[in-house]
């Protein structure tokens, strides 16, 4: 760290710590209520692997993991919102 840099750990550690505990508590709640098999939760768990990566570009790869990778337009938009993870396909 050079003398002019802000200490990013000082700035961001507590925020990251809070978010990590939030996620852990969310997963605990899902387990308690038997909802851990939801396709969005499965996608989230697959994306977790990127958090332990040593390679830069984690945010991009997490977003990729939570994206629809099909290429053709869908036949019709039946809703206007999005769910955060693509639906499971058979």
């Amino acid at each position: 760290m050079s003398g002019n840099d802000s200490n990013l750990v000082d700035l961001g550690f507590l925020d990251a710590r809070i978010k990590l505990i939030d996620i852990a508590a969310f997963l605990d709640r899902l387990d308690r209520h038997g909802q851990a098999d939801d396709y969005r939760v499965k996608a989230l768990r697959e994306a977790f692997a990127e958090l332990d990566s040593k390679e830069p570009g984690r945010a991009s790869r997490v977003l990729d993991a939570l994206s629809d990778h099909t290429e053709e337009p869908i036949e019709a938009a039946e809703i206007q919102g999005a769910f955060g993870a693509p639906p499971e396909t058979d």
């Binding site: 994206s67 990778h69 919102g81 999005a82 769910f83 993870a85």
Partner: peptide
């Protein structure tokens, strides 16, 4: 687009 639709939509 938003969320899971953004990557495909951007392409």
């Amino acid at each position: 687009p938003h969320l899971e639709d953004k990557l495909k939509g951007t392409k």
